[in-house]
């Protein structure tokens, strides 16, 4: 039997682990919004593809490394398909048109998976099921720890790319003003796929970690997580990579702590209420110091 503060600490750790999944999804959302001002609704579908293909490939007996690689490749490909057939076709049209097609992709991906693998909840045969380390009496599962580390590492790599390469300069130029970026010679059609590639990789990785960790996947697994990811992105400030990471961890901790103290029914009201209040009072997010639309990314 654990003492009260230890129990709280354990829940805090669990919340951080859950939050790292939200954080990865939030970074994916924040990328397409920050650079392209595009709310990509296909992200829940890509998250689901990452999770479902982890289950499918593990079931067929492939080694774990290959499974993760293949799931990530499929997620990235699915994301690039969204770019090709929604965003690229509709540059310059009404801002909600690409949003509609990305919703179309979400319905398409979910139902295609449903057709071939059914709608049942599948149990992932995760090799990490019971692997954990105990630090100061706190139980930390290895894939969760790896997920948290990967989330932070990938966010770091992303900021290095954004601020250290010419591609990143191009991305930031598009984020600031797409028209001037094109006039100044930024190759939009070469750079925009990079956004979708990264957003697809982050999302699919979150799906893979979710599948390995919580060992349950189904065709509609992405929706709930993506809604939390969107909230995390807003709390951290849209377009801010580190804001998304912090927001994701915050929501994960808040969710776990409030489930244990108030019950799960009130969690949704709390999370979405917070989201609404922040959107109205501080649209730049809790940590964004700058005015709206300026200094994104």
């Amino acid at each position: 039997m654990k003492s009260e503060p230890m129990l709280l600490a354990q829940q805090f750790v669990n919340g951080l682990m859950l939050g790292s999944i939200y954080a990865l999804v939030a970074v994916a959302f924040t990328l397409t919004i920050g650079v392209l001002n595009f709310l990509n609704f296909s992200i829940p579908g890509i998250f689901m593809l990452g999770g479902m293909f982890t289950w499918i490939f593990l079931k067929s007996g492939l080694p774990l490394g290959l499974v993760v690689l293949l799931a990530l490749v499929i997620g990235a490909a699915a994301s690039l398909l969204v770019e090709r057939s929604s965003y690229r076709q509709m540059m310059g049209s009404d801002h909600f048109i690409p949003l509609v097609s990305s919703m179309g992709f979400l319905i398409l991906y979910e139902n295609l998976v449903l057709i071939f693998w059914g709608s049942d909840i599948q149990v992932v045969n995760s090799p990490f099921r019971d692997v954990s380390v105990t630090v100061f009496g706190l139980i930390i599962s290895i894939p969760q720890l790896a997920g948290l580390a990967l989330a932070v590492t990938m966010a770091y790599v992303l900021t290095r790319i954004l601020y250290g390469t010419s591609t990143g300069r191009g991305l930031r130029a598009i984020a600031e003003n797409p028209d001037s970026a094109i006039m100044l010679g930024v190759h939009v059609f070469r750079i925009v796929p990079v956004v979708f590639l990264f957003s697809g990789l982050f999302t699919a990785l979150a799906g893979v970690i979710f599948a390995l960790n919580y060992t349950q996947v189904h065709p509609f697994m992405g929706e709930e997580v993506a809604l939390k990811g969107i909230s995390a992105m807003v709390i951290g400030g849209m377009g801010s990579v580190w804001g998304a990471i912090v927001g994701g961890l915050l929501i994960g901790v808040a969710e776990i702590l409030s489930i244990s103290s108030f019950g799960s029914d009130f969690v949704d009201i709390a999370v979405y209420g917070l989201l609404l209040v922040i959107l109205v009072i501080r649209p730049e997010g809790l940590f964004g110091g700058s005015a709206l639309g300026r200094e994104r990314l």
Binding site: L39, G273, L275, L276, V280
Partner: peptide, 28 residues
């Protein structure tokens, strides 16, 4: 009055949050 202060994607997200709150409230 407060929600329409926001624009574009922010408005879409604020209304989305409102819809979720109404459904979650009825659930209780």
């Amino acid at each position: 009055v407060p929600i329409l202060r926001t624009r574009g994607i922010y408005l879409a997200l604020a209304t989305f949050a409102l819809g979720q709150i109404v459904a979650a409230a009825i659930l209780n």
